[in-house]
Structure formats: C-alpha cells, structure tokens
Design a protein around this nucleic acid. Structure first.
Lengths: 144, 144
DNA sequence: TCTATTTATATCGTCCGCGATGCAAATATA
DNA sequence: TATATTTGCATCGCGGACGATATAAATAGA
C-alpha cells in the first residue's frame, strides 16, 4: 500500500522530529553550562541518587554502556563527576558527582520550567500531558 | 523544585527514548537492505516525489543540509540515488532515485505494517493514534 | 581447585545531528 | 554594470548511538 509509506502517517518520524526539536530547545540552556542533553540526563540520574555504577545509569536511561562510558569520560574530564573502581566488585566503575556536578543542579534550576513553557500549547498542557505520557510509556514498555 | 528534575516527569526523555527504541525496531528490517533509518526517511520523501533538490528534502525532514548532504553522498555511493547539478539553478543538487532506489520500495513494502504491529498496544491503537499524532504535531509546530 | 561462563566496563568503527564556516551561483542594490 | 547580499550546498569538528569485539573480574560447575 503506497499510503503506508506516506511520511505524514509515520509515528516514528514524529517522535524522531519531536525529540530532536526539544533537544534543540534545551541546547541554549545547557550549553551555557557546557553540557549536552545526554549529559544532562546523566546528571538527572545522579542528582536522584549519587554514586551509581555505570550499568545502573545506562539501564535507567535505556542506553548501552558503550554509549554511556565515553559520555561519562568526557564529563569526568570536565570535572563534573568522578569514576572510581568499585570496592566490593572491582569490575564496576562507581560514578559520583563532584562539587561542580552538584552545583549544576542549582544553576539549571529553571530549565524544566523554561522547557515546559516552550512545549505547552493547546494540544499539550497539564490536562493532556498525562495521556501523552501514558502513550509514550506504553510504546517504550512494548519495545524495550 | 527538586520534583521538576525527576526523570520520570520529563517529556523529552520519553520522546528521546521512544524515538530511539522505534528506530531500533526498524533496524533489522532496514539493515537487511543496507539502509539506516534516516536513509529510509530520505527514500520516503523521494518515493513521494522523485527529483528534488537537497534543500527540499532537508526541509521536509526538518533537518539541516549539513546532515542531509553526507547522508545523500553515502546513498549515492550505494547506488540508491543520483545527485546531478540543477539545470536552471546551478547551485542546486537534484536528487533522483536509481532503479535500485525505486525497487527498494517494493522490498520494504511490509515495513510500515511490521512496525505498526510492534508499537500497537492497549494505550496506542488505531483509536488513540490520532490523538497522539495531534499532540506530537503540536509540539513539532511549536518548536520548529 | 581448575575451568567455563557470565558480568561490568571499555574500545573501535560507522553513521548520524548540528554548530561553525566556506564557497560559488543567483539575486538585489547602487 | 559593478558591488553587496542572499541562497544552496559542502566541509569540518565534535558528541552522541550502537553493533561488534575485547578484557578483566566475579561466579558457577565439574
């Protein structure tokens, strides 16, 4: 069916585009602090719970360790976090925030609100967002 | 507000993850034909309308030409398409499908259905999809 | 205990995305 | 017509994503 190929029918293209555009919206806010969006995601994970092994961070973000490892290495070089060999399990690398990494939480305090305002509109608002979240979570659960 | 940072509250993270996971779902289907997902998107655009300049393709996909140009160069090297200088405007590169590029449409005929089945579930189905599409389109429209 | 397997992380190669920059063709303006 | 600006595309550099592979530590099994 030719209709199946119509770009406008593609769910994935919408997700792909929406994801890229929101990441672009984050960009000016994050680059101000020398961060990228995936690096910001790592910070979100570590702000919730400091001192996690690489694997836990990767699982939380649904990323492979071969994506996360170089990302963490760059962040370590920036002085945002520390990677230290695990005590009880020498294979693990425990990732913990430096003072700089913790301070970034305050410097980025208004990012969620700014992004929220950038996205909210008639169709997407506090009323409809839970429905959107539910559908996205369902897609993620189905595919992961 | 600490709650604002909760990863589970993040719309962008959901979009980012859902987008990656769906792209991964495409992967086995596309790599069979030596294609990546962005290359598949280019094919979708060209199947709709063959012989477009680089700029039109980029605009359709909401990508920059510096993303699309190397992508097209790789596809040209694979013999999927041809890039020829525009006749009336020598700055343009007109992109047209080769026989191989056109044949891929038949070889990939069941991709939309397979992906559809992989994503459909209780929360996301032919009934609710239009609502999801409307919200994603609203986000895209607001940000582009 | 010795070996096999699993697990946690790292390295490598390739393909995006995209900011910054360059260049030539087309168009606008003086 | 000469110059300035805009437009279309390309190149460069960097940071993800991710498949494939490697390595060392931990664990399981013989």
């Amino acid at each position: 069916m030719k209709e199946d190929f119509k770009l406008d029918n593609q769910l994935c293209f919408r997700l792909y585009t929406a994801s890229r555009l929101i990441t672009q919206a984050y960009h000016p806010l994050l680059s101000e602090q020398g961060l990228t969006y995936p690096q910001y995601l790592v910070l979100l994970v570590l702000w919730e719970q400091d001192g996690q092994p690489v694997n836990d961070i990767a699982k939380r973000l649904l990323l492979e360790t071969n994506t996360v490892t170089p990302l963490l290495q760059r962040m370590e070089k920036e002085g945002i976090l520390l990677r230290t060999k695990g005590k009880q399990d020498a294979r693990q690398m425990i990732v913990s925030l430096t003072r700089k990494g913790k301070e970034l939480q305050h410097k980025l305090a208004d990012v969620p609100r700014v992004i929220g305002n950038a996205v909210m509109c008639d169709s997407v608002n506090p009323e409809t967002a839970p429905e959107l979240f539910r559908m996205l979570d369902a897609i993620i659960a189905k595919l992961k």
